[in-house]
Simulated scan of single mutants.
Amino acid sequence: MKLSAKEWLDKIQALPLERKIKIMNVCGGHERSITMAGLRSALPKHIELIPGPGCPVCVCPEEDVYQAIQLALHEPIILVAFGDMLRVPVNVAKGEIRSLDEAKAAGADIRPIASPAEAVQIARENAGKTVVFFAAGFETTTAPVAAMLAEGVPENLSVLLSGRLTWPAVAMLLDSELPGFDALVAPGHVATVMGPEEWQFVVEKHKMPAAVAGFSPESLLAAMYSVLRQLLEGERFLDNCYPEVVRTGGNPVAQRFFAHTMDIVDANWRGVGVIPHSGFELNALFQARNARLQFPSYEDVSRKRAGQMPPGCDCAKVVLGKIYPNQCRIYGKACTPRSPVGPCMVSDEGACRIWWSSGVREAQKAVLT
């Protein structure tokens, strides 16, 4: 019998917690569910929920966004991208174009899309023009891009790929001296595609409790209860609290598409730096579809640096769970959803945008302890 959110809360309230326990929720979708449901205020005071690096728009490297802007401005192409990417700002001098939205306003042919199928449709409807699909995202959005390529695309469609894998960022945090959390709630949709086994390293290598969760309050609270019990009872295992969707081995079809079209490479994360084996790159079979090779002159190598956030923006610390969103120096001041400075205030999966949308308007000076 499935328990209600209240019943899970009652079970968590009954646990004999005697110290502060920090649980990182990796996924931006999880953060949205947690915040909108008010779970932080409903949980015991000893439990601290820390947003993690699960926002693909937030970590998309500045050089990739910059290259997409320059392509759209200077080449006779149609550039398509998932809607959130159009508002992501880059660091340029005052008065220069700093986002795809601004490039569109300046006359570039830039179109927001919701799926790779729309990119294919636009390419077919504009056979005389090159269409570049700026494809940023984690495993769940990159898998449909791989499927699109494997199934065949029009000759005038190429891909500027900025895909990332989720688990290496968590591995980087856990390998650091101060990871900043005691337990992990792993992303359900990523586990659906790649398999829950991908998160086994958290338990085996780092002896940390972990649970895969869905996006309902019930699933999230079940995962939190699982990791809390593991800590209290001295157990360590990977629990699947999203069994209706997550299966052992993940989605083999999606994984075959990945293997057929892409390689896994070291990749840059905005504000974080290069994380080993954390990026997708089109493989040798699909180099003819690689926009980086078609338009190499627009890649600005000088932008590949760890500190790519705008001045005053603490998005990197938010992404890594080092501070809460409203502890950023410009949260709610220079940076709001109407006028975002950093990428965490742009995306619906960005922690700053989520907190602002939930009504958190007051900035705080304190940092996570």
Rank of each mutant, 00 (worst) to 15 (best):
Cys315Arg: 00
Lys129Ile: 08
Gly29Cys: 14
Arg229Ser: 12
Asn251Ser: 12
Gly29Met: 15
Met208Tyr: 02
Ile50His: 03
Val253Ser: 05
Leu161Trp: 01
Trp199Ala: 05
Ile69Arg: 04
Ser33Ile: 03
Glu151Cys: 14
Ile323Arg: 01
Gln230Trp: 07
Pro243Glu: 09
Pro252Ile: 06
Phe201Pro: 01
Phe82Met: 04
Val90Cys: 10
Arg19Ser: 12
Thr248Asn: 14
Ser216Cys: 12
Lys11Val: 07
Met24Glu: 05
Glu118Ile: 02
Arg292Ala: 01
Ala169Arg: 04
Pro51Phe: 14
Cys352Thr: 00
Leu160Ile: 09
Phe258Asn: 03
Asn91Cys: 13
Gly249Asp: 13
Ala146Glu: 07
Ala291Gln: 00
Leu86Arg: 02
Val318Asn: 00
Leu178Ala: 09
Asp266Thr: 08
Asn91Tyr: 06
Pro16Gln: 11
Lys205Gln: 15
Gly214Leu: 08
Ala259Arg: 15
Ile23Tyr: 01
Gln364Cys: 10
Val318Glu: 00
Ala366Pro: 08
Leu282Trp: 00
Ala14Arg: 14
Thr140His: 02
Pro337Asn: 06
Glu62Met: 12
Arg303Ala: 07
Pro51Gln: 10
Ala334Lys: 11
Ala93Gly: 08
Pro56His: 06
Glu349Asn: 05
Val65Ala: 10
Val253Ile: 13
Asp101Trp: 10
Val319Lys: 00
Val120His: 00
Thr248Lys: 15
Gly321Ala: 05
Arg303Lys: 15
Val367Cys: 10
Ala254Leu: 09
Ser99Ala: 13
Cys60Ile: 06
Arg87Gly: 02
Met345Leu: 05
Arg111Ser: 06
Cys241Tyr: 01
Leu221Asn: 08
Gly273Asp: 01
Leu285Pro: 04
Ile122Met: 13
Ile21Leu: 15
Gly180Asp: 14
Pro76Tyr: 08
Ala284Leu: 07
Gly95Thr: 04
Lys322Val: 11
Glu96Pro: 03
Val92Ala: 07
Pro61Ala: 15
Gln67Asp: 12
Gly279Val: 00
Arg124Cys: 07
His277Ala: 14
Asn156Cys: 13
Cys27Asp: 03
Leu39Glu: 02
Ala316Val: 06
Val253Thr: 11
Glu139Arg: 14
Ser99Pro: 02
Ala5Gly: 11
Trp269Glu: 04
Ala37Lys: 06
